[in-house]
């Protein structure tokens, strides 16, 4: 079954980066539902308009866990504006592709991140 995913996906599933929560996070985004089998929660910490830390928690399949992990790695160090441009296509490129029926997991990662940034923006207004 592990053959379903490429090495990079399996590596991120087995050793996910940035799992956890950020205390007093600058922004939090949670998307998905238990009904669909995927929930992704992303916390971001922003300092001087730069995303200095990202943590995630995910309830979901292997692709969902790997997508969350790789998204956090890709976003740390980016400016808020840069991060807003991040899409699931960037993620898919970085991860080396996902099976067709798992593409929605990469979209969830994009949406969770966008929601975290929007949440941050609404707080600083």
């Amino acid at each position: 079954m592990t053959q379903m995913y490429n090495k990079k996906v399996m590596e991120h599933f087995s050793n996910p980066r940035n799992v956890g929560e950020i205390e007093n996070a600058s922004g939090t985004g949670q998307v998905g539902s238990a009904a669909c089998g995927d929930i992704m929660k992303i916390d971001i910490k922003v300092e001087d308009n730069i995303i200095v830390d990202v943590k995630f928690k995910t309830f979901g399949c292997g692709a969902a866990v790997a997508s969350s992990s790789i998204a956090t790695e890709m976003i740390i160090g980016k400016s808020v504006e840069e991060a807003l441009k991040f899409t699931n296509k960037d993620l898919l490129k970085e991860i080396g592709g996902l099976p067709n029926e798992k593409i929605h997991c990469s979209i969830l990662a994009e949406e969770a991140l966008q929601e975290a940034i929007n949440n941050y923006k609404s707080k600083i207004k």
Binding site: M1, T2, Y5, M10, F13, S14, F59, G60, C61
Partner: peptide
């Protein structure tokens, strides 16, 4: 937890 993650982990 979600089943597929469980299956993948067991498969490993």
């Amino acid at each position: 937890i979600e089943g597929e993650s469980l299956l993948l982990s067991l498969d490993i």
